[in-house]
């Protein structure tokens, strides 16, 4: 059914939130795949649907208002959307784990950090003794002395808290890790410490990883594949070099033009004009067309789909439609 090399394959995922202001189309036919042992960088701006995608994989979309209205999520060949809540509880934490964005708010302030790691291990069937030993082992692994297991989150700095969250996520040695902006709240030197540590643990356990970020620098230094998201769709996907050396989608080009370069001197940035669309009222056709400098009338009518442009690189843009398809239309 699904490709065996792929630990994760998402096809045409559609998730909506029904709110008073209307139906928010958070994911609008997102597709991507991730090979075993690799890291996929998921890049996009606020509201692009990155976190909804992650929560969708974990089965953590709040219902209501959220609702999965279509698509498939294959994890090791089985469709998670068809799994029962009972089965999902076994998957979560043991096979798929998630590191949340904000280390300051995702730890329980009234539980010691040791207990918070033990909790995961206990939930997945370890004895009390095993759980305590496991928690100590995990703390040491992320570079925190095990004596500090008795301390509470407020006694740790931001970088240390993020290490504890990573320890919780990795406690059951999951095959697949989702990291939702794991270093956004951290300073750059601490961010580097945490990323180096994550890379080491990933290699040690051969974990596959989905790294959600808005920082193209982090992607370039840490990922093997890249998916660029805009308005609930993956608009460009490919291997790291395909995206960074040969970006095709006008939105991707716009993102690269927006970051000031450290190596070259630029007088002016070339930002993308306009604002991201209101997700309750997405434009017809290509969602990027109102901001796109290459947009034609056809873009507003186009039934958005991804086109291969060589290698593993795909682009969701009418400009890359193969000639034979164009004639059909």
């Amino acid at each position: 059914m699904a490709d065996n090399d792929n630990i994760l394959e998402i096809r045409d995922l559609k998730i909506v939130y029904k709110t008073q202001e209307g139906v928010v189309e958070a994911l609008n036919g997102a597709s991507l795949s991730l090979k075993r042992g690799q890291t996929l960088g998921l890049v996009g701006e606020t509201g692009a649907g990155k976190t909804t995608l992650a929560r969708g994989i974990m089965g953590l979309i709040p219902k209501p208002p959220g609702q999965v209205v279509g698509g498939e999520i294959f994890f090791n060949g089985t469709d998670l959307l068809k799994a029962s809540e009972h089965d999902m509880r076994k998957v979560r934490g043991a096979q798929i784990s998630m590191i949340f964005q904000d280390p300051m708010t995702s730890l329980n302030p009234v539980m010691t950090v040791g207990e918070q790691i033990e909790e995961v291990l206990r939930a997945h069937g370890r004895s009390v003794k095993e759980a305590v030993e496991g928690a100590h082992e995990m703390l040491e692994m992320v570079g925190i002395p095990k004596e500090r297991a008795e301390e509470y989150p407020h006694q740790f700095s931001g970088g240390m808290k993020q290490r504890i969250i990573i320890a919780i996520a990795l406690a059951c040695n999951p095959e697949f890790l989702i990291a939702d902006e794991p270093t956004t709240a951290l300073d750059v030197t601490i961010q580097y410490q945490v990323l180096v540590m994550m890379q080491k643990l990933k290699e040690q356990f051969n974990t596959s990883m989905l790294m959600i970020t808005h920082d193209l620098g982090i992607v370039a230094q840490n990922c093997d594949y890249v998916a660029i998201m805009y308005a609930g769709q993956v608009v460009e996907y490919g291997a790291l070099r395909e995206i960074f050396k040969d970006p095709r989608h006008p939105y991707t080009l716009g993102l690269f033009g927006s970051i000031p370069s450290l190596s070259e001197d630029t007088d002016r940035l070339t930002p993308i004009e306009g604002m991201p669309p209101d997700p309750t009222r997405l434009p017809t056709g290509c969602p990027f067309h109102p901001r796109c400098q290459y947009a034609t009338e056809a873009c507003a009518q186009w039934k958005s789909e991804a086109y291969p442009v060589g290698g593993e690189h795909t682009v969701r843009c009418l400009r890359f439609q193969p000639a034979e398809k164009r004639e059909e239309a």
Binding site: S157, G159, M160, D187, V188, T189, I190, Q191, Y192, Q193, L195, V196, D215, L216, G217, I218, V219, A220, Q221, N222, L240, R241, F244, K245, F256, I259, L262, S263
Partner: peptide, 20 residues
């Protein structure tokens, strides 16, 4: 420590121990 958005950018990176 700044992550540079270029996969081919290689430089000696200095890992600072500890925090402020």
């Amino acid at each position: 420590a700044i992550p540079v958005p270029d996969p081919d950018y290689k430089t000696e990176r200095i890992l600072l121990e500890g925090e402020l």
